[in-house]
Design a protein around this nucleic acid. Structure first.
Lengths: 245, 245
DNA sequence: CGCTTGATTGATTTGAGTCAATCCCAGTGG
DNA sequence: CCACTGGGATTGACTCAAATCAATCAAGCG
C-alpha cells in the first residue's frame, strides 16, 4: 500500500514539522514541554484499522501524524455517512466529549501514525495553561465550522458542485501542509468519497470523467492533477457563501 | 404572531425553569451565582430579526429562553442551508469560537427572548470554575454530535426519512422541555424546514399529506398531531445508526 | 496466473425538483 | 365588520439529475 503522507517521524512536538498547524500552534516552549509530557504515541496502524468505535469510552483526543483518518456514522442497512477526513496535523476524536463515549467510528485510511492526548491530563493542563484551553476551544470551533460547510454541501449543492468543492478543499489543505495544490493522491477510495459527498460511486466516476473531458483535471486512479484551477473554482462559484464578510 | 414557547420570564438562572437543561445544569449554587453575575438578558426580539450575522465579532454565546432561533449559511444564489433550530434552553453562537467572528447567521423564528454570556467573562470564570469549563465543553460536544446526525440525515436519508426524523427529533426535544410529545406547533415555516432538510417546500407539503393519508400524523398548518408514534418511528428505523452501542 | 475487489461505463428507472396554478389565512384598511 | 390582499402553503403536470441495475475492466495480491 502506497504511503501518501510521510512528513514526520519525530517523537515529540518540538521537532514535529506539523507543530505549526497542530495543537502546539501558538504555545510557548514551556507550555509545549508540558504538553509533551502527557502526549502518547501509539504504534502506527495499517490501512483500514479501526481507531475507535461508537460506544467506546472517550479517553483521548487524537492528532494525525502521517497517513489519514476518516470518521463515520452508519445506518442500520449499512449505508455510511463519512463525517470527516483528517490529514496530518488535524485533530479528531472530539465526538466523545459530550457523553464521555465516542459517538462515531474512526478508521485509518492508510498506514497511519498518530498522537493521543489523554483527555483528563489535558483538562488538568488546560487549567494551568489558559493558552491550551483556548487552543482546544478553537480546535472544536474549527470542527464545528467545518461541519457547517459540510452541511451546506450535502443540503444545497449538486453532484458537480460537491465533487468540485471536495477537490478544492483537499487541494487547499494539502497545500497548507507543504504538498502540491495541483497534483496529489487521494488518500481515500471512491466509495469513501461517495459516502462523504452523499452521492453514489458511479456518479463520482462519471463526474471525474466529465471534469477530465472538459480539461479541468486529469485522473489516473487515485492520482489527481488539477489542470485548470480557475475553471474548477467556477464550478463552485455559486456555492461560496456570501456570509463570510 | 402566536407565541409557541413561553416557559419562563425570570431574570436569573436560579429561578429559571430551564436551568435543568441549560448551562447551569450540574453547577453548585455558588457557581451558579457567579454565572448569574456575568449573564446578560437583552431585550426580546420580534420574529424574523437577526441576532448576529456572519462576519460579526464573536462576543457572547447565547441561550434561548422563549421562542426559537435558527442558524444558517447561504449560497451566492441565495439558497439557504439551515444548520440548526434552537429551542428554549438550547445554546447557540458557538460558531464564533474558532475565528472570534461568527461564521453563520442567526435569526429569531418567533418573538424570542434569550440570554447572552460574554465569552471573555465566561472564559475567566471557566478558569475559576472547572465545572463550568466541563459544562461548556460538553455543550460544544453536543453541538458537534447533533451536526453529525444532521450530516447523516442530509447525506443518506430519503425525503420521507428526513421529515420523519425531523418530527421525531422535535417531538423528543419538546417533551424534554415539558411539552406534549404528540401535539405541538412547528415554530418554523415550511420553507425553513425545507432548508433544514435539504428538500423543497413542495416535497414537504406532499410528504405531510402522505403521512396524514397513512394516518400517522394530522397536520393543520403549523399544528402537528402525531397519531401513530410507532409507525412514525418505523419510517426511520433504517436510519437509527447502529453505532450507538 | 487466476481471483478478488474497486473502478468504470452503459442502459434504464425513479425520487424529487421545477414550473405553474390555485388555495387559504392573517393582517390591513376602508 | 367585512372585503381585500399578499405571502405562505398546497396541489398537479411534467422534467431531469442522480440512483439503480448490470456488465465489464483493471490492478493488486496470494
Amino acid at each position: 500500500m502506497t504511503r501518501y503522507f510521510n512528513l514526520d517521524k519525530s517523537v515529540n512536538c518540538d521537532s514535529c514539522l506539523l507543530s505549526g498547524i497542530c495543537i502546539p500552534h501558538g504555545l510557548t516552549d514551556l507550555e509545549l514541554q508540558k504538553l509533551n509530557e502527557i502526549i502518547e504515541r501509539p504504534r502506527p496502524l495499517p490501512s483500514g484499522s479501526s481507531i475507535y468505535q461508537s460506544g467506546d469510552a472517550f479517553k483521548s483526543i487524537f492528532a494525525v501524524r502521517t497517513g489519514g483518518v476518516a470518521t463515520f456514522l452508519t445506518k442500520k442497512n449499512g449505508d455510511r455517512q463519512i463525517l470527516s477526513f483528517y490529514l496530518p496535523g488535524e485533530i479528531f476524536g472530539l465526538d466523545g466529549i459530550e457523553t464521555s463515549s465516542h459517538r462515531c467510528n474512526a478508521v485509518a485510511l492508510d498506514h497511519t501514525s498518530y498522537c493521543a492526548l489523554p483527555y483528563d491530563d489535558m483538562d488538568e493542563l488546560c487549567h494551568l495553561v489558559p493558552n491550551l484551553r483556548h487552543q482546544v476551544c478553537k480546535l472544536i470551533g474549527h470542527e464545528l465550522n467545518t461541519d457547517h460547510q459540510h452541511l451546506l454541501l450535502l443540503g444545497q449543492q449538486t453532484a458537480h458542485e460537491k465533487l468540485a468543492s471536495f477537490l478544492l478543499s483537499l487541494s487547499m489543505r494539502l497545500q497548507k501542509r507543504g504538498f502540491s495544490a495541483t497534483e496529489f493522491n487521494l488518500p481515500m477510495s471512491r466509495h469513501d468519497i461517495s459516502a462523504y459527498l452523499g452521492i453514489t460511486v458511479e456518479t463520482i466516476s462519471r463526474l471525474f470523467r466529465s471534469f477530465q473531458d472538459k480539461g479541468i483535471i486529469e485522473v489516473e486512479r487515485k492520482l489527481i492533477h488539477i489542470l485548470n484551477m480557475k475553471q474548477l473554482k467556477e464550478l463552485v462559484s455559486d456555492c461560496i457563501n456570501e456570509d463570510v464578510a
